[in-house]
């Protein structure tokens, strides 16, 4: 973190300028995180009168808890599904918009709408479309002979939240892929045309490799999004059900803490999430460093 070559003197002024940021960070970020870690090693007795240090027991309990493991598995499947579908559709749309000479502006203007929609709102829209009794898509599915009721069928509930979550992320991926495609020099594609590479071959051998940095970056961003920004999707629609089928980790940590009031377990879950964010951030930064060398 270098400073400018030309700097001003003094210590009091820069510290004063940093004070608001540091105060908020310490009070609302660092301190609570430390608390979460400490609490994850403690357990309250039944009446909430005494807390005692229990070491790793909360974590051991998590590992032994089939519901937690199931939630973990659900989150993995959910994240993979969201990331893959949002990336594939986003890339497809970007490639197509990049190919048209007329109307590209209008197409991209229409495709970025969903980005502005909050995840929870997106979930409500999709929950309506797929409402078991009156949803228009439900009726369509019924015509196709598919019985759709996400209130009963766990897989269908998971599909619902995948759709709702991926939908708005498509816009995001589209924008980044399009920017990536447009930064590929035309001369490269012209050279490939002269080398008689067909469109698909051009894409596979030239365009896609050049998009690799963008793709990798988007994978990380999409996974982070699927892990941490989807609380609203679950909370506003399925409430984690039916059964446990859509209880994502971020939903479970909230539910066990605020509804179940199980502080030790909720904190242990927080710490697990913390480890996941740190890992993802590390991956992102390793990648950032590489991108600088490009």
């Amino acid at each position: 973190m270098q400073a400018k070559r030309v700097t001003f003197g003094g210590t009091a002024l820069p510290l004063a300028l940093l004070a608001p940021q540091l105060a908020v960070t310490v009070v609302f970020f660092v301190w609570p995180a430390v608390q979460a870690v400490i609490t994850s090693f403690q357990r309250e007795d039944a009446f909430g009168l005494k807390t005692e240090f229990v070491g790793l027991e909360n974590f051991r309990d998590l590992w032994a808890d089939p519901l937690y493991l199931e939630s973990f598995g659900t989150t993995m499947i959910f994240s993979a599904a969201v990331a893959v579908s949002a990336l594939v559709v986003g890339l497809l749309l970007a490639v197509l918009v990049d190919r048209v000479s007329r109307g590209a502006e209008i197409y991209s203007a229409l495709l970025i709408w969903p980005y502005a929609v909050a995840p929870a709102l997106a979930a409500i829209l999709w929950a309506f479309l797929l409402n078991p009794s009156i949803g228009p898509l439900t009726r369509l599915l019924r015509v196709l002979g598919i019985a759709w009721n996400y209130n009963v069928d766990g897989t269908q509930a998971l599909i619902l939240i995948v759709f709702a979550s991926a939908w708005k992320q498509v816009s995001y991926n589209f924008l980044f892929f399009l920017a990536g495609l447009q930064s590929i020099p035309r001369s490269l594609l012209e050279a490939a045309s002269i080398d008689a590479a067909g469109p698909w071959r051009q894409f596979r051998t030239i365009v896609f490799p050049l998009l690799a940095p963008t793709t990798f970056f988007l994978i990380v961003v999409n996974v982070v999004y699927a892990f941490f920004d989807t609380f609203g999707v679950v909370h506003a629609t399925t409430g984690g059900g039916p059964g446990q089928s859509t209880t994502l980790l971020v939903y479970k940590v909230w539910k066990d803490g605020f509804i179940g009031l199980n502080l030790g377990s909720s904190s242990a879950q927080s710490v697990v999430l913390l480890v996941i964010v740190i890992a993802l951030t590390a991956v992102q930064f390793r990648f950032l460093e590489r991108r600088i060398n490009y």
Partner: peptide, 17 residues
Amino acid sequence: ITLMLPVEVRILPTFAV
């Protein structure tokens, strides 16, 4: 560090503070 601490990973204590 704030990059690594979304609300979700420190939910109860942040509420408490």
